[in-house]
């Protein structure tokens, strides 16, 4: 699987990342190689029947009650700008 320069530019846009042309070239080469490796999950022996995940069964008694509790104090205070219990975004166009 070859990721072109345009593919990388599109992925960067979706990922909210700004890449320089040399970075796009580098990621195009590196990620194409990685994808070639990852593609083995779609080849040969990997075409076997899917199995049901054996995750532990969690019963309703294992999870906490669905009730509203106060949030951890200080979470809102992490924002660079706050107003009361709100986060204030910087003025943007």
């Amino acid at each position: 699987m070859h990721l072109t320069d345009a593919d990388i530019a599109h992925l960067a846009s979706l990922s909210r990342l700004e890449l320089t042309p040399p970075q796009r070239t580098l990621f195009s080469e590196q990620l194409s190689r990685v994808l070639d490796y990852l593609d083995q999950i779609n080849q040969g022996d990997a075409q076997q029947e899917a199995a049901t995940r054996a995750r532990q069964n969690i019963s309703p008694s294992d999870v906490r009650a669905d009730v509203v509790v106060p949030s951890a104090p200080g979470l809102i205070e992490q924002a660079p700008v706050q107003e009361g219990s709100s986060v204030v975004s910087p003025p943007l166009a």
């Binding site: 593919d7 990388i8 992925l11 979706l14 990922s15 990342l17 590196q30």
Partner: peptide, 18 residues
């Protein structure tokens, strides 16, 4: 994000987005 995330974080984000 481009300033704050390092190369590997950006690489994996791009791949995961794909």
């Amino acid at each position: 994000r481009s300033h704050g995330l390092g190369m590997e974080a950006q690489r994996r984000t791009l791949l995961g987005t794909y």
